[in-house]
Structures are given as structure tokens and as C-alpha cells.
Design a protein around this nucleic acid. Structure first.
Lengths: 213, 213
DNA sequence: GGGTGGCCGATTGTATACAAGCTAAAGTAC
DNA sequence: GTACTTTAGCTTGTATACAATCGGCCACCC
């Protein structure tokens, strides 16, 4: 694999999994030595991460890991609502029924049969639904915008643990979205998505360490 | 100015203004010599343009200027609708009245008093409205997604000339959007934006060179 | 005659050397 | 004591040299 790609993947994982905390400075010399690549491919990796929004440059041209405040999470979900409701609308219009029928069965079965740990199955299924919707929407531009979003969302997920109650409700919400897409009901698909995101955001905010005003 | 920034700006302008046509290969050696920079900063520029979607890599690792088919334009407007209706909603919620009152006066006056050529005034005003809405929405993530979009839209604008009739209607639509934002009517702001984009897309598609099925 | 193998050319990928800018700190002058 | 200036160190920005990979083409073999 290319060194620039390696550096990008490594850094992205470290940021998303909070092994690199927000505000961590990423000096080129130090980071390149740590990752075992030279500065040139590292700069390309940092460039991609900056465009993605996971790394911010400055002040002093130094790259630092982007912070994730409570406001950031709210803004992130505002963008997410715009993109995912539209994606749901388009998916309802253009979906391949067999794909979503299979997904529906998976949700009802709770992900049994998957080769993933039990506690990861809800996320696995949710990700599968996201991918299916993205593909069904069939817009490269929308997919591009959503791709950047997913990285940030994965970061948020790491900092907010869902309880069993929330997971159960989330599954119901997901099934409703799938049903709306299967029924090609664009308005319902969008509304169901908006509801799901609203509840999801509320859950994330509630589980934040300190809920400052 | 930094060489990488210079290269980025030059290439971006050339692509947006169609001086580099879609499909044009951007060999690193040739392009770097043409722009008067070395390969390293050029690679950073290409990296940014690729992330922005104006340049695509491959096949054979060569960078080429992205194409803009009719389908691309439709998909672009689908994303635009998602982002701008949300931005309009948020702007209606959080707007600074004085800013939009000034904008409204500008629209009614038709941009008189501006130091720009008469034929550019409608675009100048539309851009000013876009900026005002983006800022009023107050979401860095939404703004980031919109920033990438603007480049593509500027490309589309170059290939579709509006007639006087369309410009007049567009102004009416813009004023309606401004009024909705001033009235803090989120639903109307979003709907008015959707209508405007729908009409705008229809105008663009109609003025396409060959309207193939 | 067609297909396959290897070679040559060119292009991108990487590393490193060098230059320039910025930050911060320390010293001096007021 | 404070503020300003200068310098030293480190940082990033750029250029170029070198390595590796990809594609095309030609010759040779089947």
C-alpha cells in the first residue's frame, strides 16, 4: 500500500477512536517518524484529513486534531439531517426492493447470523442501512458529502454509549425507515429519518460527560 | 503567497472557467512546469481539488479534470437542495434582521450602486445572498459542505446563460426567500429555496447545448 | 496469425536536503 | 519594572534526486 494511504488510514483511525484527543498537535517531523513514513506522504495524508475536517491547521500552520464540542455535535446533526433526509427521499424513489427487504429481515432478526460481536451488531446493521441508502440514492455528490460526515459521526459514537432501551427504539425507527423506502413513500422516509436523527441526537447529548448550559 | 495556494487558485480558476475542459489530463511534471511551481506544492493543490471533486484520479493514477454530464448537474442540484433548504431553515431561525433587510433593498434596487458590470449584478447579488444565508445558518459543517458545492455550481453557471425573463423571475424568488427569512418562517424559507432551485435547474437544463434523452 | 512474454519509456510515489517564516524567549533600554 | 527588539531555534514550505510501478510496444514463440 502507498505510504500516504497508510498514514491517512492510521491517523484517521487514531482520531476517530479518540487515541488522538482533540487539540493534539500533529507536527510533521514527529508524526512522520512515529508512523514510519517521510514528511511528503504524511503531508498528503494531513491534507486529506484537513479537507475532511478531522484536522484543522493553525495557528502557526501547525496541524491539530479538531475539537468536538457540544455545539459541534448539534451542528453536525443539522448537516446530517439535511443530507440523510434527502438521501432517504431519493432512496425511496430509486431503491432496489430486494436489498431493503433483506435489510428489513436483518433488523427484525437483530443481526443474528452476523460474524460480529453481539454489542456491535446494532451499529453494524445501522451502517449497512446507511450504505444501502447511500447507494440507492445514487448521487455521487450526495455520497461524497455523506462520506465526510461519517468520519465525524464515528467519533461522536465513541463518546456516547447507548443503553438497551435506546437501541431497541433505534431498531424500530430503522425498520420504519426501511418500510417507508420499500413503500416508496418519500415524505415518510424523510420524516422517519428526521425523527430518528432527532432521537439519536437527544441520546448523544444526554450521555455527554458534563451537560453544560 | 504559498506556491501550493497559487497552484490551487490557478487550477481551480482554469477548471471553473472551462479553460481546462473536462477530461484534460493534469500530468504532474507538465502542469508544475506550466504553473511555475515544483511538483510538491502542485500535488497538494491537486489533492485539494480532488477532495473538492473538481479533479478525479485515474485511470493509471493520472489526474484528470472531472466531467459534468447532464446527470451530474441533476445530482448536483439534488445535493444543493438538501443543503440550501436546510441552510435557509437555519438562517430563518437565527438571522440578523439588519443584514437581510439590506439585502432585500439591494434586490429591489437591482444592484444599482455596485461597482460591478450590469450583466454580473444578478450573480453578485445571488452570491451575496448565499453568503448571508451561510453565515446566518451558523454551522461550520454545513458551510463546509456548501463551500465544495459552490465550485461545481460556478462551473455550471458558465455553461448556462440566463435570459432576461429568467433573471427577473429569479429576483422575485430571491426576494421571497429573503422575506421568509426576515419573517423567521422556516418552512417557507425552505420551500421558497426549493422552488427557486427547481426553476434554476430547469433553466440550466433547458439551455444545455444538446438536450439528449 | 495470434497470443504471450519481456523490455523500454514515462509517470507517479517517496525521501531528503535546503530555504524561509514564525514563535518564543531573553536581553537591553527607557 | 515594563516594553520593545533581536536572535536563536524550530517549524513548515519548496525543490530535486531517486525508486518503483504502470502502460505500451515489439519481438518471439506457439
Amino acid at each position: 500500500m502507498r505510504a500516504s494511504e497508510t498514514a491517512y488510514q492510521l491517523l484517521r483511525d487514531e482520531i476517530i477512536q479518540w487515541r488522538l484527543e482533540p487539540g493534539t498537535p500533529l507536527g510533521e517531523v514527529e508524526t512522520s517518524q512515529r508512523l514510519g513514513v517521510s514528511r511528503t506522504p504524511l503531508r498528503e495524508a494531513l491534507s486529506r484529513l484537513t479537507a475532511e475536517g478531522l484536522v484543522r491547521t493553525g495557528p502557526g500552520r501547525t496541524a491539530v486534531v479538531t475539537s468536538m464540542s457540544r455545539d459541534d455535535i448539534v451542528e453536525l446533526f443539522e448537516l446530517r439531517e439535511a443530507l440523510e433526509t434527502q438521501a432517504a427521499r431519493l432512496a425511496a424513489r430509486r431503491r432496489d426492493a430486494t436489498v431493503f427487504e433483506a435489510l428489513r429481515a436483518d433488523f427484525v432478526a437483530g443481526g443474528r447470523g452476523k460474524n460480529v460481536p453481539v454489542e456491535d451488531r446494532p451499529y453494524e446493521l445501522a451502517d449497512a442501512l446507511d450504505v444501502a441508502i447511500d447507494e440507492a440514492a445514487g448521487s455521487v455528490y450526495l455520497q461524497g458529502a455523506l462520506r465526510d460526515l461519517r468520519g465525524h459521526l464515528a467519533r461522536v459514537r465513541r463518546s456516547a454509549h447507548s443503553n438497551a432501551d435506546r437501541l431497541g427504539r433505534a431498531t424500530s425507527e430503522h425498520i420504519l425507515i426501511v418500510d417507508a423506502i420499500l413503500a416508496q413513500d418519500e415524505a415518510l422516509a424523510a420524516s422517519a429519518t428526521a425523527v430518528h436523527l432527532h432521537n439519536s441526537l437527544a441520546n448523544v447529548l444526554a450521555s455527554l460527560p458534563q451537560d453544560e448550559a
